[in-house]
């Protein structure tokens, strides 16, 4: 109806490279449309890098990958001012964060100090180095990944910092049929390299502006708030969703509606996005020390809460 052909084109383009993960691709595109950042919590080797790279390639945007290690310094991310002896001036060498799509791989491996440098830059959309500020590119999206299994020697992002990510998704392994197709395909070293851009940067900025205009009916707003209230009231959660989280859900729902060929939101948009948008913003009850993936448990709790909130008729 609207801009759908273009959004669909992005998705199709990425799907040429990543098979069988259309939901994750849709969410990534939605995240970009909503000007948010994406956190992928998943096991290694499912295509996180490929996804980020393909997204960047489809939009003809620049793409940088930062592999986080435990000895990474903030300057490695943000950049550093180098003194030119000849010119007697400092020259700023931009770090990898000055790209459109930044893949922050294994963000939980690095020290909290380094993590916070990235996160602050994400939220402020600018970098301050040596008392100078440098704005970041637009559109700007950080795709961070965390390995949920290996906790040894890691610094998992604390809940208060997770709030900065619009949604947290999981890609997961492909199903058997798809995996076979992947194995059958001729392997290319950098599959995303072969992609052609389908959208320009200006068009993407345009789309991002259009998201604001998507209509959210009053009753759906009440439904959304109902969900938020339910998380705050629930006994299983110490901390419910904050207002920032409610805003995030609202924005994401509008973006999803746009991605699906509508200029109005449906309850389905809100219901589908609630687990990915809200589950990393809530804190499970203390004393419920969960061995294993507490992220899954949080998602389960949010799903349960969704089942108890009635949809307006």
């Amino acid at each position: 109806m609207y801009e759908t052909p273009k959004i669909q084109a992005i998705r199709d383009n990425i799907e040429r490279v990543i098979k069988g993960k259309s939901q994750a691709i849709e969410l990534a595109v939605v995240c970009m449309l909503a000007r948010g950042h994406l956190l992928i919590e998943d096991v290694p080797g499912v295509g996180k890098t490929t996804l980020a790279h393909s997204l960047a390639r489809s939009l003809d945007c620049s793409f940088k990958r930062i592999q986080f290690t435990s000895d990474l310094l903030p300057s490695d991310i943000l950049g550093v001012s180098i003194f030119h002896r000849q010119k007697q001036t400092f020259e700023f060498m931009a770090g990898p964060i000055f790209a459109n799509v930044v893949l922050a791989d294994e963000i939980n491996r690095t020290t909290p100090k380094t993590q916070s440098s990235l996160l602050e830059a994400m939220s402020e959309a600018q970098v301050s180095v040596d008392s100078r500020t440098y704005p970041l590119r637009q559109p700007f999206m950080v795709i961070a990944t965390q390995n949920p299994i290996e906790y040894h020697g890691t610094f998992p992002l604390p809940e208060s910092q997770l709030d900065r990510f619009l949604m947290r998704i999981r890609i997961g392994y492909p199903d058997q049929v798809e995996e076979k197709k992947i194995l059958d395909r001729p392997q290319s070293l950098h599959p995303a390299e072969d992609l052609q851009p389908v959208l320009t940067v200006e068009e993407m900025l345009d789309l991002q502006n259009t998201v604001e205009k998507v209509r959210l009916d009053d009753s759906l707003m009440n439904y959304l708030l109902g969900i938020i209230m339910a998380t705050r009231r629930s006994d299983l959660l110490t901390l419910g969703v904050s207002t920032r989280g409610a805003l995030a859900l609202c924005k994401a729902a509008k973006a999803l509606a746009l991605a699906r060929d509508r200029d109005y939101c449906l309850p389905d948009d809100i219901k589908e996005l609630a687990p990915v948008v809200l589950s990393h913003r809530v804190m499970l009850n203390r004393g419920q020390g969960f061995k294993g993936r507490s992220s899954e448990h949080a998602e389960r709790v949010v799903q349960d809460i969704l089942e108890t909130v009635p949809i307006p008729l």
Partner: peptide, 16 residues
Amino acid sequence: RHLPDYLFANQPTTVS
């Protein structure tokens, strides 16, 4: 029933 995997003695927890 949803029980957490670990509890602490003398500390209240919520079971759903």
